[in-house]
Computed example of a mutant assay.
Amino acid sequence: MQAATTGTSQQGGSTWLQTDPLTFRHDLTGADRDYEPVSDVPELTIPFPGVWEISYLARPAISVSTNAALWVTTALFKNNALIPGSEAITGLQASDEVIQNTTGQTFLHKFDAGDRVTLHAYRIGQTGTANILSNADGRTGVMAHWVSPGF
């Protein structure tokens, strides 16, 4: 689901888009460095062109039971292609450890009307479990704020 608050005009108005508060657990089961969509987070559709401030938060959870390293990288995609500079990483190297935190990025990016923004993630390391979570203890979501008609 996508919540939107829109001002009265594109120029000078205030437009915000964001995902609603979500509750989910998305297991990352793919190969190392193989992005997969975090399908529990709905895509944001950009309503009109211009420069948008994009921000996202992701709550990775990582668990290892033997001496191992495991990492989670998150990023945003535009129309199924990586937005360079949106990547964030968290991880650990330990034995019998669990870590959860919130990671993400905020940046400016130019979009066309109808562009679709989605959250993706991958794991590095196959020993242990890695997932993206969202609940009242820590949320995962994507936000967009229209800034200007262009660079």
Rank of each mutant, 00 (worst) to 15 (best):
T129N: 08
V147S: 00
I89R: 14
T8G: 15
L28G: 10
S39F: 02
M1R: 14
Q93W: 11
Q126H: 13
F111W: 01
S148P: 05
A88S: 11
N67P: 06
E87W: 03
G114K: 05
T29L: 12
A69N: 14
T73M: 04
D20P: 05
L119G: 10
R123V: 09
Y122V: 13
P149R: 05
Y56Q: 01
H120W: 15
D137N: 12
S148N: 05
T66I: 08
F107G: 05
Q93Y: 10
L133W: 15
T23Q: 15
D137C: 09
A61N: 13
T15D: 00
G50D: 03
A81S: 06
A31W: 04
A75G: 06
F151V: 14
A61K: 06
T106Q: 09
Y122M: 07
E53V: 06
G12K: 00
H120F: 13
S14C: 07
S14F: 03
S14V: 08
A113S: 12
S65Y: 14
E36M: 08
R25P: 04
V72P: 02
S9T: 11
N101T: 15
T118R: 10
A4T: 06
T118Q: 12
N135L: 08
H109D: 03
A144D: 00
P37L: 12
A94T: 14
V147D: 00
Q2S: 07
W52I: 02
V72M: 02
Q126I: 13
V142M: 05
T15W: 03
G13T: 04
A61L: 12
A113D: 05
I46K: 00
T73K: 10
T74C: 08
T90P: 06
Y35A: 12
Q126V: 15
T90E: 10
L28A: 10
L82H: 10
T118K: 09
A130V: 14
G114L: 04
G13P: 13
D20H: 12
S14M: 12
I62G: 11
T74Y: 01
L44C: 04
S65W: 13
T19V: 04
A88N: 07
A4K: 11
T15A: 10
A130K: 06
Q126D: 15
T29F: 01
Q105W: 02
L17N: 01
L17F: 02
S9F: 05
A4F: 00
W71G: 15
F111M: 01
G138T: 08
P37W: 00
G30S: 06
G30I: 04
T29V: 12
E97C: 14
I124R: 13
P149H: 09
V98H: 11
T103I: 15
T102R: 11
S63G: 14
A94S: 15
H26I: 03
Q93T: 15
E36W: 01
G12C: 05
W52Q: 02
H109G: 02
G128C: 11
T6H: 09
E36N: 07
L17R: 02
G141V: 02
I83N: 10
V147L: 01
P37S: 08
V41C: 07
Q105R: 14
P60E: 05
Q100V: 14
V41H: 00
A88C: 02
I62D: 12
T73D: 13
P84L: 10
E53G: 07
L76M: 04
A58P: 09
K110F: 02
F111L: 02
S95F: 07
F111P: 00
W71Q: 15
T118M: 08
